[in-house]
Simulated assay, not measured.
Amino acid sequence: MSIEILSNEAITLLKNLIETPSFSSKEDETAQLIEQWFTAHKIPFKRTKNNVWATNKYFDDTKPTLLLNSHHDTVMPNKAYTKDPFKATIEDGKLYGLGSNDAGGCLVSLIATFTYFYAHKDLQYNLVIVASAEEESSGENGLNSMLSIIPKIDVAIVGEPTLMNLAIAEKGLVVFDAKVKGTPSHAAHPNNNNAIYNTIEVLKWFKDFKFAKTSKALGDVKLTVTQINGGKQHNAVPAEVSLVIDVRVNDCYTNKEIVEILESNSPCSSIKARSLRLNSSSIPVEHPLVQAGIAIGRTTYGSPTLSDQSVLSCPSLKLGPGDSTRSHSADEFIYVNEIKEGIEIYIKLLNKVL
């Protein structure tokens, strides 16, 4: 099948995906649309919950395996939309709709690319494609749940909007819940241990704190206090104030090391990480996938945003059509030509390594 035909079919699939709500953990109907693609192209597939996956026709256990992955769940549309988020419309070359950019364009481009290579013989790598669920919510039934089900993978391309440039590293994430304690009291009485006032110095500490190691690809670890809550009534000083701290981890640290540093140094009364599983990820510049991308004119960079790369233990490359700055925005869109170009670039890149 020609790349042009595959591109047109991929755009049609994306329109259908946009018009089918698929919030995290509720992707059953979009999973059916993806099943229909594989059925129409006579590609055997399997479905595990809302994850749809397939392997290339001539899968060979003696060869290394390359994963192609993107997700078909979306966030909720925000209130600033002026267009119907579930109506796929094309205006001035832009395909509008919820999930068009994050990550529908990537998903359909990878599905088309997998379809192009599906029946090729004598590939250097096996191919596995997973159209995964629950990426936006980091849910337990997403790509992480598939790693013990699909064949062992050696390297991965994760489809997220990168303007088809090569994100060779991605920051991990650790979210902390912290408490600053004090003495509860009536607001009318003196209190030299007011938890809210105690929080001032704690917030300043977080604002000024710097992790020592800087990554060449990802820069500094980014620490941000994102939530604060304390007190329930105007005349009562609370016993404690709760904070939430978002830490974006570069590839110089493990998540466990980040936890140890903040537990040992932060001035909070208590601080606890919610999870350690969303790790930073990277792929060596020398890897054949990266070198293939560079050879066809793509640039490399480090990505500050989180994706399903965080659950992979193998080298992984983030690459896809669309622009990350459009993700989760009102009136989300992707250029139609970005999808066509994405498929062409995926195929050019894989032709160099397969």
Rank of each mutant, 00 (worst) to 15 (best):
I129E: 00
T48P: 03
N8Q: 12
Y197W: 10
H186W: 05
I343V: 07
G231N: 14
S327N: 05
V244K: 13
Y197T: 06
V225D: 03
S242D: 15
P85K: 13
I283L: 12
K46Y: 03
I258M: 08
K83L: 15
K15Y: 08
W53I: 00
M76F: 13
E134G: 10
L218Q: 12
R326N: 01
L163S: 11
S316P: 05
I168P: 06
I245E: 05
C314K: 08
T224S: 15
K207F: 11
V202C: 12
T305P: 00
N337I: 00
I153T: 10
T39S: 14
P21R: 10
I149C: 05
G105A: 08
G231K: 14
C106T: 00
S137A: 15
S215K: 09
T183S: 13
D246H: 02
I153Q: 06
R248F: 05
H234V: 14
M1T: 08
A80E: 15
M146W: 01
H41F: 11
S281I: 04
D60H: 08
N229V: 04
I90S: 00
F23G: 11
G322A: 02
S327P: 01
S132I: 02
L312T: 05
A330H: 09
L319K: 01
L68G: 02
E29L: 09
C106S: 12
S2D: 13
I343P: 04
K348T: 00
L13H: 08
N235I: 14
A188Y: 10
S282A: 13
S138D: 10
S22R: 04
A80W: 12
N250W: 07
H41W: 09
E135A: 07
N50T: 03
I296E: 00
I228F: 12
P151E: 06
T162R: 00
K216N: 15
I245N: 09
D73S: 07
S100P: 01
Y96V: 00
H328Y: 02
E136N: 11
G302W: 05
P151Q: 07
T39C: 11
N229M: 11
R298G: 02
S215Y: 09
F38H: 05
M76P: 07
T224C: 12
K352C: 06
L289W: 07
A188L: 11
K210I: 07
N165I: 03
Y125T: 02
I200C: 13
E136T: 03
E29P: 01
H328A: 03
W53R: 01
I157C: 04
I296D: 01
A195S: 14
L223E: 09
I261E: 12
Q309I: 02
L218H: 11
L67T: 00
L218C: 08
V311Q: 05
Y253K: 10
E136M: 06
V336F: 00
N101A: 03
A10L: 07
A187D: 15
F209Q: 14
F176A: 08
G230H: 10
T199Y: 06
D208L: 12
E29H: 09
S307K: 01
N351V: 02
D323A: 07
P161K: 00
Y96C: 02
Y118Q: 03
T65S: 11
Q36R: 10
I150S: 05
A10N: 07
V175A: 09
Q227A: 11
L127G: 01
A212G: 06
Q227S: 09
Q36L: 13
K15M: 12
D122F: 11
G342S: 01
S269N: 12
P304W: 04
S109Q: 04
